[in-house]
């Protein structure tokens, strides 16, 4: 009994440690006083400032565009590469899978600066394109890692059966293989999208000339000191994440439910 309570107290303290900073940000985003300590009453003026801030609006635009494009292209390339790599002979496959791991195990700063060196040595201008290419590069490995296990657990006879029944290899791929590995593809896309939305280090090194994302704007604002508009921005971003998570949870609960119903029938 004592142990139980000890567990509860410990977890309680950990949750305070995890959530206190976030709650502070949210509370201060409504605080009508620039100095941190005083509570100057409730206000929405930081939110209005936020909506009038051009830097933040451009950053938001680039963040969403880059994440959408990078995740989509990476999912496309990654899925086909996973199918291709799956059919490689053992040794080349091992080499390729390991090279594919490099961006995953390398520190972000090394990936970022090495890509920056690549772009600048080939006289490419740093900007939107270089940032997009970098995002695709670090997204693809995660898509492959999400799709590969689904391919491994795929029943080989399914494709053979489709071919025996007269399907062309491409038709079999489209109608049999792709639908079977779809959960992996969707997971890969979601991972790629979240990584892109959240990325700071690699974007920081590979972008230039007025192209920024939200992380870069937050970084430069925070370096200049504490600013209440960042609190408002964090509150909004947190709300978006919560809404997204709610829908993802609801969706997976729905899928689970359907599966269970199917089982009973």
């Amino acid at each position: 009994m004592v142990k139980r309570n000890l567990h509860k107290i410990y977890m309680g303290l950990i949750f305070v440690f995890l959530y206190a900073p976030i709650l502070v940000l949210v509370a201060y985003s409504f605080n009508d006083s620039t100095s941190r300590g005083n509570w100057g009453g409730f206000t929405l003026k930081w939110y209005i400032d936020l909506f009038n801030d051009r830097d933040i609006k451009t950053a938001l635009y680039y963040t969403v565009i880059v994440a959408m494009l990078a995740a989509t292209i990476a999912t496309f390339i990654g899925t086909f590469s996973a199918i291709g790599l799956y059919n490689f002979k053992k040794k080349p496959k091992a080499i390729m899978v390991n090279v594919n791991y490099l961006p995953v195990v390398n520190p972000d700063i090394v990936t970022g600066l090495s890509l920056m060196i690549l772009y600048l040595s080939t006289n490419m201008k740093l900007g939107f394109l270089s940032m997009l290419l970098s995002h695709i590069t670090f997204d693809i490995p995660f898509v492959i890692l999400a799709v590969m296990p689904k391919l491994k657990s795929l029943n080989k006879h399914l494709t053979e059966a489709a071919l025996d029944l007269g399907a062309t290899p491409l038709y079999a791929l489209r109608k049999v293989v792709i639908p079977e590995i779809m959960p992996g593809i969707i997971t890969g896309f979601l991972i790629a999208f979240t990584l892109s939305i959240d990325d700071f280090v690699i974007s920081f090194f590979t972008t230039g000339s007025g192209v920024t994302n939200l992380s870069i704007v937050i970084y430069s604002m925070a370096r200049r000191g504490v600013k209440p508009t960042i609190n408002a921005l964090s509150t909004l971003m947190l709300t978006v994440v919560l809404i997204l998570l709610f829908f993802i949870n609801k969706r997976s609960a729905l899928v689970e439910g359907q599966k269970n119903n199917g089982g009973i029938k």
């Binding site: 950990i14 976030i22 939200l214 925070a222 947190l238």
Partner: peptide, 19 residues
């Protein structure tokens, strides 16, 4: 427990500046 991880890493770090 994982939820705070979904928040941007820079914001999580920034939060400690205000504390």
């Amino acid at each position: 427990f994982i939820l705070p991880m979904w928040m941007n890493m820079l914001l999580r770090t920034y939060a400690w500046m205000t504390i």
